[in-house]
Amino acid sequence: MRTFVAKPAEAQATRKWWVVDAKDKPLGRLASEVAKVLRGKHKPTFTPHVDTGDFVVVVNAGLVKVTGDKATDKKYYRHSGYPGGIRSQSFAELVAQKPAAPIQIAVKGMLPKNALGRKMIKKLKVYASAEHPHTAQSPEQLSF
């Protein structure tokens, strides 16, 4: 008996859409569940070298919560490449500027750091408000 190996084409044809409301959910816990679905670890057909995951739409991304003092104390860093070019923003500042960014960054950090992981992150759609343009895909509610 050979262990089942998912074929990329078949896995792609059976991808589903999920929608999740980020309102008042802790950032990391939300991201971990979303990352699982993007990777396909919720399916019995999971294959490590094939993208077997589904699409995930996150709405109300601006209302995601962090516990404790992390709204002011959690910093996001980036570097321009020039000396002294480090820039930092707190969680609250980042949410105000780009409401979708914290979730994007958190989920990306939980996916594999390779070509497959970069493909998986493209299936994540994050929206600041409660509306999303993917109603045609009739996404199901993701519960955890």
């Binding site: 262990t3 670890k41 019995p44 999971f46 490590p48």
Partner: peptide, 9 residues
């Protein structure tokens, strides 16, 4: 791998 799949199911 089998454990991951069984867990998913």
């Amino acid at each position: 791998l089998w454990i991951v799949r069984i867990n998913a199911a």
